Computed example of a mutant assay.
Amino acid sequence: MTTRARILYVEDDINLSFVTRDNLEAAHFTVHHCATGIEGWTAFQADEFDLCLLDVMLPQTDGFTLARQIRAVNVDVPILFLSARAERADRLTGLRLGADDYLTKPFSIDELLLKIEVFLKRSRTSTSPVTSQVRVAPPLPAIGTYLFDQANLTLNRAGQNDILTQREADVLAFLLARPNAVVRRDDLLRAIWGDDDYFMGRSLDVFISRLRKRLSADSTVRIDSVHGVGFRLVIPAIL
């Protein structure tokens, strides 16, 4: 007998959550519903789930924060946002946090069920018996004498953790994926901010300045500005 997939469903709208949960259970899923972000995080820590459905506008802890907490401890579990916030910026934020999809309200139950089936199938394939032996976490990428943990938003040097913001970690990861190479300014802006207008460019400059300060303890590492083009993360070796 196939085990019923367990879904963590975090939604504060009582009527919507009742209807959605009823349809999910009719489709033979086991649903654990929570009405606040804090309840959702507590439930996720206490139990194992095959998939998470998260609203964005939640009391106590919003859905973006909850997704960030979940991704910090589990990079595999599928996350789907169900939100009334339909702005492009919100959708991009959710996807950058590691969500697998972002559906806007009102959504089709049939579409939701289809997406759940797709993501559960993908998740189960990635953890099939061939690859589900004890997982060894890959080594953290080195940036000179720093170790960069993007999932946990930290730079570690000599045992000391420097906590990054999500945007700082995103910018640094984009540069690190292209070490010692020129990264075009507009490519970075579109990848992280979703656009390359003037005001976002000013914001990028602020984050580059912050990252330079965070990396300043190692003289072999620097972020160069390439005039009129973009930036280059210079590191002594690619480990």
Rank of each mutant, 00 (worst) to 15 (best):
P141A: 11
P141I: 09
I143M: 03
I143W: 01
G144Q: 01
G144F: 04
G144R: 01
T145K: 15
T145F: 08
L147R: 03
L147T: 02
F148P: 00
D149S: 06
N152D: 09
L153Q: 08
T154I: 07
A158Y: 10
A158K: 08
G159K: 07
G159Q: 02
G159N: 05
Q160T: 15
N161C: 10
D162E: 14
D162G: 09
D162T: 13
I163M: 12
I163L: 15
L164Q: 01
Q166R: 15
Q166V: 15
Q166I: 12
R167V: 09
R167H: 11
E168I: 02
E168F: 04
A169S: 11
A169D: 05
D170H: 11
L172Q: 04
A173M: 08
A173R: 02
F174K: 11
L175S: 01
L176R: 08
L176C: 07
R178C: 06
R178N: 08
P179Y: 07
P179M: 05
A181D: 09
V182G: 08
V182L: 14
V182R: 12
V183Y: 00
V183L: 05
R184D: 09
R184H: 14
R184C: 11
R185M: 06
D186Y: 03
D187H: 13
L188H: 01
L188I: 07
L189F: 02
L189T: 04
L189M: 14
R190A: 11
R190S: 07
A191V: 11
I192D: 00
W193E: 03
G194T: 06
D195R: 00
D195S: 11
D196V: 03
D197E: 12
D197F: 04
Y198K: 15
G201W: 00
S203H: 09
L204K: 01
D205N: 13
D205S: 10
